[in-house]
Amino acid sequence: MRILHTSDWHIGRSFHGHATLDALRGVLGALVAQVREHDVDVVVVAGDVFDSAAPAAACYGLLTDTLRGLSDAGATVLVTSGNHDSAARLGFQSALLRDGIHVVTDPLRVGTPVTVADADGPVHFYGIPYLEPALVRHLWPDGDVRSQRRAVEHAMAFVRADLAERGGRSVAIAHCFAAGVDATPGVEREIRQGSLDVVPLSVFDGPDYVALGHIHGRQQLSDRVRYAGAPLHYGFTEGDKPRGSWLVDFDAAGFASATWLDLPVPRPLVTLRGTLDELLTDPRFADAESAWVCAKYTDPTPQSDPMRRLLARFPHCATVVHTPEGVRGDDGLSYSRRVRRARSDAELVDAFLSHVREGDGASEPEVAIIRDVIDERSVVEATA
């Protein structure tokens, strides 16, 4: 049996205020083509199909088109809900879906697999929707479900109990932080990484393969426990991480191998650093003119209207950050203390510049100009 493991589509998510729906449509279209090309039998989507609990109508359209395309390509499809999805909204249409498309959102069905057979016998797919402890605790009052870790442990106990009775090969699908994972700062939201919310790998003992979601970068925690990551880049901190999915092969004994399949990147992400003038004119940045750009300009002082000026060269500049170089270190003084310590008008102006420039006071040419202005003012006041 051949299984494609994908996750974290985040349909409807924006990228620094820019819509991503069209880009995602193209990438998911490429994923459907890969399913057909590689004769995939089962596609597993491990949570966070939507980016919010109330997605726009166009998001449902993209999901429906993609699920239909995967089914038409000959695959059985299993989708679970993540922490971004509304289980009710994701699951409401499951009864209307064609045969071979399964949406798993009900915690009470944990331990009841979707079974797909091949020439070597059955493979049992155990979908575990995202389990918010506060919302599922009442379902398992004897389970001490006070954390994400305990919720997944409890769910996997159901899986192992059912598997012990059924026998055969198996796949578990979950959406969580697993021990040893490398998270992406500022991207994977809303599941804390405290010690009670990280799930030990031993919790996933039993199934032949564990398809995880929530982390946006490809990661292999063991031969049989993996994250596929998101199909699009949703932040500049993800820019160096490949996009794709795991092509997992089962033989008669269970897990045999996993191969990474790259997905196309509609627009690369780059972070540029230099003075604003360098960013606007230097030929070494020419390759970035068609990319998503995070521009970090290093001028000592904030520049006028940097985003508008950068957009003239980089039409897809998404964010601009002022990161001055050569700034004097923080002397620990507040603005009011600097003002009180000033012994002259020149020092008072320098105190103001140090405050607005985060520690960098007047330069030597500026000191000369300030002195000239103060001297002229003194002459005017003396003759008034």
Rank of each mutant, 00 (worst) to 15 (best):
D120Q: 13
H10D: 09
A87V: 00
R160E: 02
L78I: 15
Y335N: 05
Q93P: 00
G74T: 11
D144L: 13
P268S: 07
R149E: 14
L221T: 05
R68S: 14
L221Q: 09
A19N: 12
E188D: 13
R146Y: 10
E364A: 12
V320W: 04
Y234I: 00
P242F: 07
D331P: 01
F158K: 11
G361T: 02
V203L: 10
L311Y: 02
I215R: 05
G47T: 03
I215E: 08
D85G: 06
K296D: 07
R267A: 05
F92K: 10
V123Y: 03
F177Y: 14
L90Y: 10
Y227N: 04
H316S: 12
P122T: 05
V265Y: 01
D39V: 03
Y60A: 02
R169Y: 08
L108Y: 04
Y60V: 00
P185V: 04
A384L: 13
L108P: 00
L272R: 04
H214T: 01
A30P: 00
L261A: 08
R357A: 07
I374K: 03
S290T: 15
R149L: 06
F158A: 13
F255M: 04
R13V: 04
C317V: 13
D41R: 14
Q34V: 01
H16S: 07
L31V: 09
V159P: 03
D305N: 13
I11M: 06
V152L: 12
I101Q: 06
A172N: 05
T275C: 02
T301H: 06
R313E: 12
C294W: 13
L31Y: 08
V136P: 03
A252H: 12
M156G: 01
D162H: 04
E37W: 02
V32T: 11
T275Y: 06
T383C: 05
S52A: 14
G213S: 06
F50C: 04
Q303A: 08
L221M: 09
P268D: 11
A134L: 14
Y234Q: 00
V367Q: 15
G69T: 06
D208M: 07
L263P: 01
A46I: 02
S245A: 15
R89M: 14
T281W: 01
Y209Q: 04
H154Y: 13
P315T: 08
T281C: 01
Q193L: 11
R2V: 03
W260N: 04
N83F: 10
V187M: 10
T184L: 08
E289M: 14
L247Q: 09
L263Y: 08
P55G: 05
E132K: 15
F285T: 01
